[in-house]
């Protein structure tokens, strides 16, 4: 058992926690950005603008149906071929945002479609413009229903950040790999601790989602 804990010198623990910071940072920036882009795309779907909506829909479907790992590799390794060089951190954020926006767009569309049509009619008959109806009446109701699925997406994001270890982003999983590369006896202890950290973070998020679910039901 002492062997188990010998992996966690103060330096190693600090190094791992620094990785957790990067994991959380990438996740938060990506979720905020993808919420913005996902909302715009979701509204475009919902408004059924001739040609444009179905065009955006096709692109969205393509992105949604690709492995995130491929999108990450593409952003970091293939875009430089087009002259677009992104640092690792921002390449990860861009890849995550593209992928998650496509996911969230579907959630936003679903949320909008779940709002009673009477809410639109009431607001229009009341003299509000389309934009005012969306902003003051429909979106606030739709977002309330979307909180639990949005948190689920955040959980996916936190987990998926580990894929960026493939492009050597020094997040939690990558740093774990660095530690056990020094001493193979550290493999199991490090994996166990990483499991625990991810689990606590994500399980905590899922409890928040559950709390909202109960409150909204």
């Amino acid at each position: 058992m002492s062997g188990f804990f010998s992996a966690f010198t103060e330096a190693n623990l600090g190094y791992l926690m620094g990785g957790l910071g990067i994991t959380v940072g990438v996740s938060i920036i990506s979720v905020v950005l993808s919420l913005i882009f996902g909302s715009i795309i979701g509204i475009v779907f919902f408004e059924k603008i001739p040609y444009f909506s179905s065009f955006v829909g096709t692109i969205n479907n393509i992105v949604r149906n690709l492995p995130l790992l491929l999108i990450i590799f593409f952003t970091y390794f293939a875009l430089p071929q087009l002259g677009l060089h992104l640092p690792i951190f921002w390449a990860t954020v861009v890849a995550m945002t593209v992928f998650q926006s496509a996911m969230l767009a579907e959630i936003v569309r679903g949320g909008l479609e779940a709002v009673d049509v009477g809410q639109f009619e009431g607001a229009r008959a009341n003299g509000l413009t389309n934009m005012q109806t969306m902003w003051h009446i429909v979106l606030p109701q739709a977002y309330k229903k979307m909180i639990p699925p949005i948190i689920s997406q955040l959980i996916s994001l936190v987990k998926d950040t580990s894929l960026a270890s493939g492009i050597v982003l020094a997040e939690l999983t990558y740093r774990g790999q660095i530690i056990y590369a020094q001493n193979t006896n550290f493999i199991v202890p490090v994996l166990v601790v990483m499991t625990l950290v991810y689990f606590l973070l994500n399980y905590g998020l899922s409890l928040i989602a559950k709390w909202f679910d109960h409150k909204l039901a």
Partner: peptide
């Protein structure tokens, strides 16, 4: 457990 930890781990 399996929903909340990365597949990579």
């Amino acid at each position: 457990v399996f929903r909340n930890i990365p597949l990579l781990i």
